[in-house]
């Protein structure tokens, strides 16, 4: 038996054609009860990973365990406990919201009341005979989420659910996701290419870039990581001399200024004192990289 991970992948690799590998040894670990943000720029392998998790693509290398069971051993029963929204919202345009859910009602073995429940949950219960293709973008998205919620899932996988939503829609969705997690205890995996969009709702973060995991851990750990990676920009009356003095911080010179890494505010003061002691005038002393977005861009640009 494997610990308390609701989902775990081991050395997951995938390639679409012989020469181009899309995923390299992905080890996802999603704790029960968490909201896991799966972040990466477009084309980094998010959808491929999620498709593998659901068996939409055949496994090439590595293994996938959901609810402590191998996916390939019991796919159908595992899927009964998973709600999904993959890429674009998925529904039949010629059917109403209610009919769309009825298509899957028996497949997931839930009763009529459940259909009404999820419709109320996403605020679509009064759409009556209106066909889904006439819905607004936000309504379509909510219908797709209703479908994902239909089986009363223990795990919800949402691929880019904020795509195409307006700021209001994003805030609403964020509220809904928190509610589902806190009140119903659903574990949620949510993918996005924008860190800021999910930062406010997730408990855990996994960052994927070019098919490799760059980071995986709690939000706190990411903040810690960010501290370690924080940079200080400096410009002085004698930059070469200053670099010599501060060599223990491994400074890097670029044009007018140079930068170095620091861990705490005390260090900044210390650096300043050292420069003053050596009679170097400080023109610029600027801590940088204080938000996650910059860290994310940093991480992904360093590699590209």
């Amino acid at each position: 038996m494997r610990n308390n991970y609701i989902l775990q992948t081991t050395d997951l690799s995938y390639n679409y054609s012989k020469n181009v590998q899309t995923l390299f040894d992905i080890n996802l670990q999603v704790e029960k009860g968490s909201i896991y943000g799966f972040i990466g720029p477009n084309g980094s392998g998010k959808t491929t990973t999620l498709s593998l998790l659901l068996g939409l693509r055949n496994l090439q290398k590595g293994s996938i365990a959901l609810f402590g069971k191998e996916l390939k051993d019991d796919r159908i029963n595992i899927l009964k406990k998973v709600g999904t929204l993959i890429e674009s919202p998925s529904f039949y345009g010629h059917l109403t919201a209610r009919e769309n859910l009825n298509v899957y009602r028996d497949v997931y073995g839930v009763d009529k009341n459940r259909v009404e429940e999820v419709l109320t949950l996403v605020d679509l219960s009064d759409t009556g005979r209106k066909k889904a293709r006439h819905f607004s973008l936000g309504m379509k998205q909510r219908l797709a989420i209703a479908l994902a919620l239909l089986p009363n899932p223990e795990l919800l996988i949402l691929d880019e659910p904020t795509n195409g939503l307006d700021p209001n829609g994003i805030i609403e969705l964020r509220g809904l996701i928190k509610k589902l997690n806190q009140e119903l205890g659903i574990t949620i995996i949510i993918s996005s290419h924008i860190l800021a969009e999910v930062e406010k709702m997730v408990t855990h973060i996994g960052i994927i870039f070019k098919g490799k995991m760059l980071f995986q851990g709690t939000l706190q750990e990411l903040h810690g990581f960010q501290q370690k990676k924080a940079k200080l920009n400096l410009h002085t009356s004698d930059n070469p001399e200053a670099i010599k003095i501060l060599h223990e911080y491994s400074p890097e010179l670029s044009d007018e200024i140079f930068s170095l890494s620091y861990n705490s505010l005390q260090q900044i003061a210390e650096i300043n004192r050292k420069l003053m002691k050596n009679n170097i005038d400080v023109y610029l002393l600027q801590p940088k990289g204080n938000n996650l977005e910059e860290l994310f861009i940093d991480m992904t640009t360093n590699l590209s």
Partner: peptide, 9 residues
């Protein structure tokens, strides 16, 4: 809707 069909049980 193919993906939805295949990711249902």
């Amino acid at each position: 809707t193919w993906k939805q069909v295949f990711s249902s049980p």
